[in-house]
């Protein structure tokens, strides 16, 4: 990579295409979220009547699940480390914990949506609803994709893959999972912390 000269064909073969591709993909997706976040911020002060972040969201509960999601970043890191240290069982267990935490987050988000919907806070109600559901909805969608990828990894482990200590697939999915988590930190700050603090 970079400007240093490439030494040999073997060196080329050793590059991890998947990881680089994932980094580029994350840059692109990150930019996508930047625009959704800008839209939320842009309209933040517009909403004068009807539901707003401050009067319809549940800070405490979401904070707890935010911690869970962040914890899942930690557990994923542990999982990857276990694999690298040649402990496939540790990998499997940490992976399961990660999936549970991610699923818990999604479950809470679903429940939150359900309550809001019940209170007639919807996409079409006002501009807060529009921006809130779009932003968190796209994030939820990304979490879901990550969960699916994690489940695939789990399936492969159970089927006996990942006996070696280095797996491009695991490292790539891990990158993605960290991305999904850290985007949430930004979104959580913008939506929840800004409204309540």
């Amino acid at each position: 990579m970079g400007t240093e000269s490439i030494q040999s064909v073997e060196q080329i073969a050793a590059y991890d295409h998947n990881k680089l591709a994932m980094i580029l993909f994350i840059i692109s997706e990150g930019t996508f979220f930047v625009f959704l976040i800008i839209a939320y911020v842009y309209f933040h002060s517009v909403t004068k009547t009807g539901p707003t972040a401050a009067n319809s969201l549940d800070l405490v509960k979401t904070s707890i699940f935010t911690v869970l999601l962040l914890a899942s970043s930690f557990t994923m890191w542990r999982a990857e480390k276990s694999l690298r240290q040649g402990r496939p069982n540790g990998f499997r267990n940490w992976l399961i914990v990660t999936i549970v935490l991610g699923a818990a987050f999604l479950y809470d988000q679903g429940k939150g949506y359900f309550h809001l919907y019940h209170d007639n806070v919807t996409m079409s109600r006002n501009i807060f609803g529009t921006t809130f559901f779009t932003l968190t909805g796209f994030h939820g969608f990304h979490v879901l994709l990550g969960l699916i990828a994690l489940c695939v990894l789990l399936g492969l482990t159970l089927a006996g893959d990942f006996k070696t200590s280095h797996s491009s697939a695991v490292e790539t999915v891990t990158l993605y999972w960290h991305f999904v988590d850290w985007v949430w930190v930004v979104i959580f700050s913008v939506i929840y912390l800004w409204a309540f603090l």
Binding site: L24, I27, S28, E29, T31, F32, V34, F35, L36, A39, F43, V46, T47, M123, S124, N126, I127, G129, T130, T131, T134, F138
Partner: peptide, 30 residues
């Protein structure tokens, strides 16, 4: 890589406006 996300985001919002009656780009409703 950096520009198309802007297009995708705008189109997604416009599509949400049109199909889910949201308000991103409709001045009369905020």
């Amino acid at each position: 890589l950096l520009a198309f996300p802007a297009l995708n985001a705008s189109l997604v919002m416009l599509f949400i406006d049109r199909t889910l009656h949201a308000h991103f780009f409709i001045p009369v409703s905020g």
